[in-house]
Write a protein that binds this DNA or RNA. Structure first.
Length: 477
RNA sequence: GGCGGCAUAGCCAAGUGGUAAGGCAGAGGUCUGCAAAACCUCUAUUCCUCAGUUCAAAUCUGAGUGCCGCCUCCA
């Protein structure tokens, strides 16, 4: 099956052609670690995690590199404000990143390189650029000479002429061209600094990605990803310095950028201050719900954030989880496992779901459309369970399919069905007794007591539902 | 000023030439002591406006309106 993805470089969907058959090498720009990451950052992480998982599902061996920018102006600034060593601050938020990432079901990258651990590699590249006339040093700073790189602007579709017309750049007299950008920055007293041929300093922002992607993936790797706002200047500059350094060899084969998360139709960003950190959101919403919400819109469309949307996402995810739970319950029942009619029907529904899912995902990772395949399979399963008290082989297949496809998007649909059932023996026994008591009350038509038990448990986060086969319960946070 | 994107039901959201997926909310029904969940039925003659191309347009073209992003650190 062919897989198409939108390449920012060519501005069109194109067939994915890996550098090496059966393998995918991708680099995703990670966070600058001076704070907890926010919902907008999370969108990027979740989107590329989904893309990675789908490649794995398709049978590719995926090498996924996501860096940490753990040294830059913002980190130094924040360190000063908090009275903390900038490098320690950077490390702190790297640790915090992993906590939130886990809640969002983000798979750890194959490699999570840190900028501060790749200074020698960066220095080597900067030196190479100077040697070939693409970089120049001025008083301890090193700049990249954009007008020496003919392709400058090819990713973002602008020319140096266009940008001159904009001219919102404050002119640094020492630069040869206003758009020249820093490869190396001279350290001010008290700032973290590394030795270099140009004196003490620290790397510019873009050079780290060049150094680390080349080190861990090599030239011409498959996918370079990030948020839309990175395409210019960050990725444009990366291309210039990397392809300049590689003497024109291609840096990355495909460039992918996700659209923004907005809030009140405005971009959520750290600079605007209109952001919610994932840490804050996790207080009220499980990470999976946030993830479900983020993948409910195609990654190249803007997505507006608000509480109502989050609630809708929660309901939707619960619907899929419920479906798995009901199937589990039905499969646990005694009885025939052979039901030709049902098996046939569910088997077909499973196949259709897989096909629809793959068709959606093959078309530039259309996770929003893929959701529909999951919902339709869930509905077929529910209908079957409703009509057939006897389990069927087909139901097991359908359930496995739903769980599997959910997993490709990063959802553990099976997990909620297991909470309380597997994890806590004592609770199970207590609940058995409680439900017996309530059952006796109901037999005596003591509705007041029955409702008192149900309402009381609900307050504690345990939901009871009555069925013809008896009451069931589940934990709901 | 330069470059780019978006506009589909009450809300979210797919759909890029063949007659409007899916979810949430809502209405009615089945089930239930009630509830919840689930199931069934219903809910856009129409896709920002106008004009054009076509047998056929939400989908293509042109003009307009509105919103957003990048051009400076940002995912």
């Amino acid at each position: 099956m062919s897989l198409k993805l939108f390449n920012t470089m060519t501005r069109q969907k194109e067939e994915f052609q890996p550098r090496e058959s059966g393998k995918v090498a991708m680099y995703v720009c990670g966070p600058t670690t001076y704070n907890y990451f926010h919902a907008g950052n999370a969108r990027m992480f979740v989107v590329f995690d989904m893309i990675r998982r789908y490649f794995i599902y398709k049978g590719f061996d995926v090498r996924y590199v996501q860096n940490f920018t753990d040294i830059d102006d913002k980190i130094i600034q924040r360190g000063n404000v908090e009275g903390m060593d900038p490098l320690a601050l950077g490390q702190k938020y790297i640790d915090e990143y992993f906590k939130d990432a886990k809640e969002l079901n983000l798979l750890p990258a194959t490699v999570h390189p840190k900028a501060t651990e790749h200074i020698p590699e960066m220095i080597e590249i900067i030196q190479g650029l100077i040697d070939s006339g693409l970089g120049y040093e001025v008083e301890g700073d090193v700049y990249f000479a954009v007008d020496h790189f003919p392709d400058y602007g090819k990713l973002s579709g602008r020319t140096l002429e266009d940008m001159k017309a904009g001219a919102r750049v404050e002119v640094d007299e020492r630069k040869r061209h206003p758009m020249d950008f820093a490869l190396w920055k001279k350290a001010k007293p008290g700032e973290p600094a590394w030795e270099s041929p140009w004196g003490e300093g620290r790397p510019g922002w873009h050079i780290e990605c060049t150094a680390m992607s080349l080190k861990y993936l090599g030239a011409g790797f498959d996918i370079h990803g990030g948020g839309e706002d990175l395409s210019f200047p960050h990725h444009e500059n990366e291309i210039a310095q990397t392809e300049g350094y590689l003497k024109g060899k291609t840096f990355a084969r495909h460039w992918m950028h996700n659209a923004f998360l907005t809030i009140n139709q405005e971009k959520m960003s750290k600079s605007l201050g209109n952001f919610f950190t994932i840490r804050e959101l996790l207080v009220n919403s499980p990470g999976e719900v946030i993830r479900f919400y983020l993948l409910g819109t195609h990654y190249r469309s803007p997505l507006d954030f608000n509480d109502q949307n989050l609630i809708m996402a929660q309901k939707g995810l619960e619907r899929l989880q419920t479906s798995v739970r009901l199937a589990q319950e039905a499969l646990a029942r005694e009885g025939s496992v052979k039901n030709d009619q049902g098996t046939l029907e569910l088997s077909r529904a499973s196949k259709e779901a897989r096909e629809a899912f793959e068709k959606a995902m093959d078309d530039d990772f259309n996770s929003a459309l893929a959701y529909a395949a999951l919902f339709e399979l869930a509905k077929t399963m529910n209908s079957f369970v409703q009509a057939n008290p006897v389990p069927s082989e087909g139901l097991a297949e359908a359930q496995n399919t739903l769980v599997k496809l959910g997993d490709v998007l990063g959802f553990d649909l099976l997990h909620p069905a297991k909470i309380g059932v597997e994890n806590n023996e004592i609770l199970n026994e207590v609940m058995e007794v409680v439900l017996q008591i309530r059952s006796k009350s109901r037999q005596k038509k003591d509705w007041e007591m029955a409702d008192f038990i149900r309402d009381g448990l609900k307050e504690k986060g345990i939901v009871i539902e009555d069925t013809p086969q008896g009451a069931r319960w589940q934990i709901k946070r």
